[in-house]
Design a protein around this nucleic acid. Structure first.
Lengths: 237, 237
DNA sequence: GACCAAATATGGTCAGACCATACATCCATC
DNA sequence: GATGGATGTATGGTCTGACCATATTTGGTC
């Protein structure tokens, strides 16, 4: 034994790092590892799984890109690969790349956003949640100087709607969508010139959620996104 | 010169592979690279970006996990890192891991699926698309032997609905969701024992889409998912 | 022209080394 | 005994160079 597990002898089909990935995934499921728990060090993991440290590292890079672990250098309780929970940030990178690759069009992303926001707003109207955050965001937008700052708080406003749905997955997708199209959002604000209409929309959405009026909230979302990204006009420019 | 670009001298904040990632992303956007185009070889990339091949590989692993590239060994036009487009498979891994980490609950995933399927079914009813695929899937489910085979074609049926919406992003998310909960879907079929009710739902959904009856389609989706994944109470979550 | 062998380019993997970082430990000093 | 700096050490980050497996390309042979 210790026959090198046949790495070079039998590359089979699974690359080494994929095996590592599977083993780590197994361990997460079996040992009931959860957010905050630490994985063994790279060197230790390499020895346990009988692969090189390079392969372990490639697996860790994948897990990191998926928002599952976060690596910290140094020593101590916080060092090493720690299980985290950031499906959102992982999605952002994924979407941004696929937007660049023209795998996805801006219109598809905006339409998806419309779907999620309407759904979330409907739920939010029923639970009347997240109103404080929305309020703060609206005030911040009033005080914003420049499109970038406006969009920054605009994102917070819409994120609050998504969070109010109570569904972490839709919320994560929502955040990812906003992050991926942030640049386009700034362009949209610049193009409009005036943020008055957008702010009026925001207040209308907030009022509808506060009053528990789901139908109005859903419709207000549609109006708002249509104002920012007119569907008749071509996407982008 | 060739002062190693200060790698070890100045690790700064960005790890080397992150720099590679950024450069590749840049190149995709700037050069207008698209699906099917090839990236330079690992060794060549390493030299161009003045980093080691290990760093290049870690970056490629990330891109691969994001469904942006696909690596083929050997030689020839198809070898090397080729730009691909698989946001769906990337999302699947992401969701499966976050389900395992208990970052997400099954309820949240199913609710998200409900949102997307209703939205897609509404669009499909308006475009009357994807009917042939749905038909084939229904027939295949009739002929299925065992829950696993049934679920396999069930996935094809629901994927057809998502595709019919014409939105590649929602379709990709949908596929990812189905893949992530496939095991639970099989459990659900086993638990139900009889697939007659599910098939009746499928036919009702298909009929509604064929007849352009969006409201009925949306409602049929809700009934269907409630049958497969009974929510102990209300919208839950 | 067809077929087989060698050359070659590509990703996959490994081993070992060194650096930077950040905590842990120890010891001298007060 | 408490404090504070020097030293130790574990961890991730990176590099180098080597070798293997695979698949195409090339070229020679029949």
């Amino acid at each position: 034994m210790t026959e090198l597990a046949g790495q070079a002898r039998n590359p089979a089909r699974v690359r080494a790092f994929e095996g590592v990935l599977a083993r780590i995934e197994e361990r997460i499921a079996a040992d009931g590892l959860t957010v905050g728990d630490r994985l063994p060090g790279e060197r230790q993991l390499a020895e346990q799984l009988q692969v090189s440290r390079s392969s372990v590292r490639e697996a860790l890079r994948v897990l990191e890109s998926l928002g599952v672990v976060s690596s910290q250098v140094g020593r101590g309780p916080d060092a090493g690969a720690v299980l985290t929970s950031r499906p959102g940030s992982a999605l952002t990178g994924l979407l941004r790349l696929h937007l660049g690759l023209a795998t996805l069009s801006l219109r598809e992303v905006v339409d998806t956003r419309l779907m999620i926001e309407q759904w979330s707003a409907g739920h939010a109207a029923r639970s009347r949640a997240g109103l404080e955050t929305m309020e703060r965001a609206i005030a911040a937008m009033d005080a914003a100087r420049g499109p970038e700052e406006f969009v920054e708080h605009d994102i917070a406003f819409h994120a609050a709607i998504a969070e109010a749905s109570g569904n972490r997955l839709t919320s994560a997708i929502m955040q990812a969508l906003r992050g991926a199209v942030q640049r386009f959002a700034i362009d949209a604000v610049v193009r409009l010139g005036d943020t008055g209409g957008l702010q009026a929309d925001h207040r209308r959405i907030r009022d509808a959620i506060r009053d528990g009026d789901a139908a109005t909230a859903v419709e207000a979302i549609a109006v708002h996104l249509e104002r920012a990204y007119p569907s008749t006009a071509g996407p982008a420019s």
